[in-house]
């Protein structure tokens, strides 16, 4: 049986290198690798943890999140993520999944949002929030992305997001669009979606949150956007701030109609 295990591992190693070896020039393609990884996506472990957190009474108010309204009614998780960000009347804000969950954690469980905003990625309450994200997005897998751009507040955020996307700043005078407005570009082996087109925006939006195999971390869209700012060498955005939500609305709204593939798996 050990021999069989070894054989399987060897087979996997060969299969992993072949897309690279067979790729010519700019055709570096990790799709086959990603496909292999998707079967055992460890994001599922986060999803299990998130489901547990959703149902566990926690915080100063010792409450669960089962009454949390993600936009489809209190406690409805099914398909909720595919329709976020959206406008919420109770907070009078356009909120993405992270900011909405953060609101629920504060309103229902009494966990102060400041603790998450001032915290670090993958740690403490912000780490728990990521597990909740994994749980919620998994229940939108295969659903079409449906952002309601007819709402004036959402449209306002979309326009703000587009401006932020094209706004050049930082030590290198980069905008998001510097890397994400042409087809077929990549950084090292990572293909960069062209977010100015619906297909590219959908590609970006529908593949995060994702588990990154190279560092064994699960990254939410907030985490991904924060890292884009960091790579841009500019001021890092405040967690769940308007600019991050605006960029999300822009990307999600442009990708409307595409199928959500959450949670993703990345190299």
């Amino acid at each position: 049986m050990r021999r069989q295990l070894l054989f399987t591992a060897l087979g996997a190693a060969i299969a992993l290198t072949s897309p690279l070896a067979g790729a010519a020039g700019d055709e570096l393609n990790f799709d086959a690798y990603r496909e292999m990884l998707a079967d055992g996506n460890p994001a599922e472990l986060l999803e299990m943890e998130g489901e547990e957190l959703w149902r566990t009474a926690r915080g100063p108010k010792n409450a669960t999140l089962e009454q949390c309204d993600l936009g489809r009614g209190p406690g409805v998780v099914e398909g909720a993520a595919a329709q976020l960000p959206r406008y919420f009347a109770d907070t009078d804000k356009v909120q993405d999944l992270e900011s909405r969950l953060m609101h629920c954690m504060e309103a229902q469980q009494g966990i102060p949002s400041a603790e998450i905003i001032n915290g670090q990625f993958l740690k403490g309450e912000r780490g728990k929030l990521a597990a909740l994200v994994a749980y919620v997005v998994t229940h939108s897998k295969g659903k079409p992305i449906a952002i309601d751009l007819s709402h004036p507040r959402v449209k306002e955020m979309y326009d703000m997001g587009e401006r932020a996307f094209r706004y050049r700043t930082g030590a290198m005078d980069f905008a998001c669009s510097s890397c994400h407005s042409q087809d077929g570009k990549r950084i090292r082996a990572t293909q960069l979606p062209n977010i100015t087109k619906p297909e590219g925006a959908a590609e970006g939006w529908s593949s995060w949150p994702a588990y990154r195999v190279s560092n064994s971390q699960f990254w939410t869209m907030q985490h991904r956007l924060w890292d884009c700012f960091r790579q841009q060498r500019t001021a890092e955005p405040v967690f769940a701030s308007d600019v991050t939500i605006a960029l999300s609305v822009f990307m999600a709204g442009k990708g409307n109609g595409a199928e959500a593939r959450w949670p993703g798996v990345k190299r």
């Binding site: 069989q4 295990l5 399987t8 079967d39 055992g40 460890p42 472990l45 195999v213 064994s216």
Partner: peptide
């Protein structure tokens, strides 16, 4: 073996 191992048999 990697973090969060996956095993199929």
């Amino acid at each position: 073996v990697s973090t969060n191992p996956y095993l199929a048999f």
